[in-house]
Design a protein around this nucleic acid. Structure first.
Length: 632
DNA sequence: CATTATTGGATT
DNA sequence: TAATCCAAT
């Protein structure tokens, strides 16, 4: 539930920066010939042309929409360039976009507190910078104003036809403005600079809103979403909100991306008055719906009539006050300093007939997912000196036999051990625990026998990430929860020596850092599993169960970067891959969405991936070719 | 079971 | 801490 933080007469300067059709921009930077062309990014091309996850502005003019299928997009815009999301290990790989997002963050985080809100969005708290600017340079005497700042849209500012920029300039430097407006004006200047800097350093354009808190931004987001593409929508929304002039103005500027908009507090009340309640952040779901029905409220303005006490008794004290404040554009939501994600996850869905129906099929996919996750954890460790402590496996499933077919598949989690093989091993155990519970009394019998169940989604994620304080040589201290008995700190130390052996080298355009972990003399082999924490959780059945503390005991295996992975992983694969042809043959679900089968010429292929030589993958290719049905 | 893949946050 | 749900993009 939303929690209200007491806060009023808020003079912060909060900006929200949102990349324009980010994935498309990333692809266009990679292939500059796509610039100016109608372009969309699509993933998985073998079913109805794949799903669009980003649509460029040129393509939007043709009515191409996000989450159309590639085929539909082609229908309305035959010239469209469809770029595939990179596929690795049989699944979409968003790494390039994550990295591009990081580039942007590193520019935007220079002027104030910065919160990475998603892969392509950040919040900035520019209060201090704005105050400084105001103190140093009284706006009235500001000579050179960034051209970009002059293009700002000021909500509520009447545009009397003449020179728009002059109008904006006047607003920005208006001597009789109150302090809060002046701060916003400074914010607008700062953001203009930042956006230019982003463009210079990354070649990406972005749009931004500047307001006194996070909530006000919601409005901008709504407006930009709905006004952006077409004139028609623009008109209807304008009428709907009753702000024809302002919004029309805004809309005309929205033709091109790369805009910024200021929300002076004087404009907030009017804007919120007719703002649809369901579009407010946090109210898009059930709470929003119940407010609509309980109170017959359609817009934020409608909420104003209800006293705080009434809202509190209906929705609880916290949510009640939160609502009361929101209706008045008041929000104490802080911008959290956070440049890095709090968790990593790799997942894939297996819709329709692609559902996984055998344990080996599931294990194969868990392997792919675990590899990706491990790679990302490794990179996070090296780049950011952070360690994840918890591993979670989620699945969704159906059960056709039992009438109870819509039972939820339980998620399972436990301590995370580093190393691809360890992660896979634990992921499999967690999955099996989930499956047993899911199937209840059903005995899963032998590995391949599917008893009317199917897995329609799988994901493996890592969370509880903690930083290793810089200057620390050993990390063991940062893992253990108080009770640790059988794995001594000393032993863990021996296994992981971060600062000790870090070297870096260049490779193409990227910089990799290689960290050598010291291997324990006697490698912890299978026997070591007896002490694994999962056993303690009862997730594996073993007679020889060693008593084990619940601490996150982490065994680092050496993780070199490129070439090595083959031998090691293949070795492991053989170990874990329970069955071969038999079980595989019965499952067309095995690798049914591999990247090899696209319709030639229909897509702009993403940099031909180097043949990822993995035995499992090759087997998968062969299999999927014969197992693929036209629809599937 | 065809809006996928990820995130983050809150509740219990 | 684990599991579950919800919301957002």
């Amino acid at each position: 539930m939303p929690v209200a933080r007491p806060e009023s007469s808020d003079s912060r300067v909060i900006a929200h920066v949102d990349m324009d059709c980010f994935y498309v921009q990333v692809e266009q930077r990679k292939q500059p010939n796509l610039r100016g062309q109608p372009t969309a990014v699509v993933q998985y091309n073998n079913w109805k042309g794949g799903g669009l996850i980003a649509v460029g502005y040129e393509a939007r003019k043709f009515g191409v929409k996000r989450s159309m299928r590639g085929d539909e997009a082609k229908e309305v815009c035959p010239q469209i360039h469809l770029v595939q999301v990179p596929v690795n290990r049989g699944k979409a790989d968003l790494t390039v976009y994550r990295n591009a997002g990081s580039e942007v963050v590193s520019v935007l985080s220079k002027k104030g507190r910065c919160e990475r809100a998603s892969i392509d969005e950040v919040y900035l708290d520019l209060t201090e910078a704005a105050e400084r600017m105001l103190a140093e340079t009284p706006l009235e005497r500001l000579e050179a104003i960034n051209e970009e700042a002059l293009k700002s849209h000021i909500l509520g500012l009447e545009m009397d036809g003449v020179d728009v920029k002059e109008n904006v300039r006047n607003w920005l430097v208006r001597p009789d403005a109150d302090r809060r407006d002046k701060l916003l004006a400074c914010g607008a200047l700062l953001v203009a600079e930042l956006r230019l800097q982003v463009l210079e350093e990354t070649q990406f354009t972005c749009s931004a809103g500047i307001a006194h808190n996070k909530v006000e931004y919601t409005i901008l987001y709504f407006i930009s979403l709905h006004l952006c593409p077409t004139e028609n929508k623009c008109l209807s929304i304008s009428l709907f909100l009753g702000f024809k002039q302002i919004l029309a103005k805004l809309a005309s500027g929205m033709n091109k991306p790369s805009q910024q908009t200021v929300v002076p507090s004087s404009s907030v009340t009017k804007l919120l008055q007719n703002f649809p309640i369901k579009k407010m952040k946090q109210l898009g779901g059930k709470l929003g719906t119940s407010i609509q029905t309980d109170l017959a409220v359609e817009t934020v303005g409608d909420l104003l009539q209800f006293p705080e006490s009434k809202l509190q008794e209906l929705y609880g004290v916290n949510t009640g006050t939160w609502l009361w404040n929101i209706a008045r554009g008041i929000s104490g939501d802080e911008v959290e300093e956070r440049l890095l994600p709090k968790s990593h996850g790799a997942g894939k869905t297996f819709p329709g007939c692609s559902a996984l129906r055998s344990i080996p099929a599931v294990e194969n996919w868990l392997k792919e997912l675990s590899e990706e996750l491990s790679e990302r954890l490794q990179s996070d460790l090296v780049k950011n000196k952070r360690i994840a402590q918890s591993l979670t496996v989620h699945a969704s499933a159906y059960k056709s036999s039992d009438n109870d077919s819509h039972k939820k598949f339980p998620s399972k989690s436990g301590p995370l051990r580093y190393g691809t093989a360890k992660i896979l091993e634990d992921a499999i155990l967690l999955f099996q625990a989930g499956l047993r519970e899911y199937l209840g009394s059903h005995n899963l019998k032998t590995s391949g026998a599917h008893d009317g169940w199917g897995i329609t989604g799988l994901s493996v994620s890592a969370s509880k990430i903690v930083a290793i304080p810089s200057g620390t040589r050993s990390i063991s201290n940062y893992f253990q929860t108080q009770d640790n008995n059988d794995v001594s700190a000393k032993e863990t130390n021996e296994r992981f020596d971060l600062a000790g052996a870090a070297t870096s080298f260049h490779s193409e355009s990227e910089i990799y850092t290689e960290v050598h972990f010291t291997e324990p003399d006697e490698s912890p082999k299978k026997e070591k599993e007896g002490s694994h924490a999962l056993r303690k959780c009862g997730l594996v059945d073993s007679g020889t169960q060693t008593q084990q503390a619940s601490q996150a005991s982490i065994f680092y295996e050496t993780e070199p970067t490129l070439a090595r992975s083959m031998s090691q992983q293949d070795g492991f694969a053989q170990e874990t891959k329970p069955s071969s042809s038999g079980a595989r043959a019965c499952s067309n679900a095995d690798y049914n969405e591999s990247e090899h089968s696209f319709h030639s010429g229909e897509f702009e292929h993403n940099i031909p991936k180097e043949p990822k030589t993995s035995t499992s993958k090759q087997k998968g290719r062969i299999l999927s070719n014969e197992a693929l049905t036209p629809e599937c």
